[in-house]
């Protein structure tokens, strides 16, 4: 008993120590050494459980790589410690090392970035998923997305494809950001089929960020939904989404991916087959076009750039061809949203 208790405590302590593997600070050097001084040295700060999620964070890297390909230069990415208490240090270290621009990936940086941008007025910053307007600093740009609009289309696809009239939504952490996904998805599914049953569950409550990086718990939650009769589950759960796909594969049902085109990124044919579509959040486009405008010298600063359906900042992927047959109906809803005929709610 006591030994078991000790082992338990020891493993918990270890788990608390264990920050997620970060893949180190691999820096991609695209333009080669000895490039001109105009080549940007880009700093990228992830949030906990960042790089390697095959979803949101990796999309930012993809955008960065595209930008480095085009403009030359290099980039350095950093990940915080397990509890995220050193987020501010990541930004100040990058600024101290002379990286410019610096991009903070994730709304969790919203709290600390205000002080940092003030401290380094000559460095250009961008933050994804958090508003810069409320900070009001000239050297900070917010890169925002209309996740609810893209999720609306995901809901449409799920409702059209569901045979049981029962679908599910798995959120990573119950935060306002993820609630936007939920709200859009529910509205979309109900627009197609007002009678549809929608299971909604979050892996962890607000304040506990483990839900973005817990495939095992994602699997359990999704499994429950499939067993309860749902045949399509949409996840907005970052790294936990892998568990949702596994549950779908085990149940012989299907799932909808998020952020990246997960059909391409999941890297497992058995799981590819269950990914109906993915709600694309073009973080890559946002990052690369931000760097484009930085290189041009046209960054305004102090404002938010919103990527929505109209600019294809969000949308559905078609890889795998599973939704080709309903493409017309999806396009119809898309046009209605863009034209303002449908207003998608952003809170559930």
């Amino acid at each position: 008993m006591k030994v078991a208790a000790l082992l338990l405590a020891g493993s918990m302590a270890l788990a608390a120590c264990a920050s997620d593997e970060t893949g180190g600070g691999s820096s991609g050097s695209g333009g080669g050494e000895g490039g001109g001084s105009e080549e940007p040295r880009i700093g990228l700060a992830f949030d906990t459980g960042g790089r390697g999620d095959r979803s949101f964070n990796d999309a930012a890297v993809a955008g960065l790589e595209a930008a480095v390909e085009e403009h030359g230069g290099e980039f350095q990415d950093l990940s915080p410690n397990a509890d995220g208490s050193n987020r501010a240090d990541l930004l100040t270290q990058l600024a101290d090392e002379g990286y410019n621009p610096i991009i903070a990936v994730g709304f969790a940086y919203g709290e600390v970035i205000g002080d940092v941008v003030e401290q380094y007025p000559d460095t250009t910053f961008a933050i994804i998923d958090s508003s810069a307007a409320e900070v009001g600093a000239d050297n900070l740009t917010g890169l925002l997305f209309s996740e609810e609009e893209g999720s609306f289309l995901a809901g449409v696809a799920a409702a059209l494809k569901s045979e049981t009239g029962h679908v599910g939504f798995v959120g990573g952490v119950e935060t306002p950001l993820i609630q936007k996904f939920e709200a859009g998805y529910v509205a979309g599914a109900q627009a197609v089929n007002p009678q549809i049953i929608i299971d909604r569950q979050y892996i962890s409550p607000a304040g506990d960020f483990s839900g973005f990086n817990a495939p095992d718990r994602g699997l359990l939650v999704a499994q429950g939904m499939y067993e309860g009769g749902a045949d399509i589950v949409y996840h907005a759960a970052g790294g936990s989404g892998l568990g949702v796909f596994q549950a779908a594969a085990a149940a012989g049902a299907r799932a909808i991916g998020v952020d990246s085109d997960q059909y391409q990124t999941v890297d497992d044919p058995a799981l590819q087959a269950v990914i109906l579509t993915s709600m694309l959040k073009r973080v890559d486009t946002a990052v690369s076009s931000f760097i484009d405008s930085f290189v041009d010298g046209s960054v305004q600063g102090g404002e938010d750039i919103v990527y929505n359906l109209e600019q294809d900042g969000v949308g559905l992927s078609t890889s795998g061809g599973f939704i080709d047959d309903i493409q017309d109906q999806i396009e119809e809803y898309r046009t209605q949203i863009v034209d303002g005929e449908i207003t998608v709610p952003s809170t559930p």
């Binding site: 020891g10 691999s26 208490s85 270290q93």
Partner: peptide, 27 residues
């Protein structure tokens, strides 16, 4: 050890080194 996570990443060393040290210390 926690502070060294950031400079290690900047110098392109795996930050998991720190995790390994913390874990082995406990054991």
């Amino acid at each position: 050890l926690d502070r060294s996570l950031v400079p290690l990443q900047i110098q392109d060393f795996p930050a998991s080194v720190v995790t390994i040290i913390q874990g082995t210390i406990v054991l």
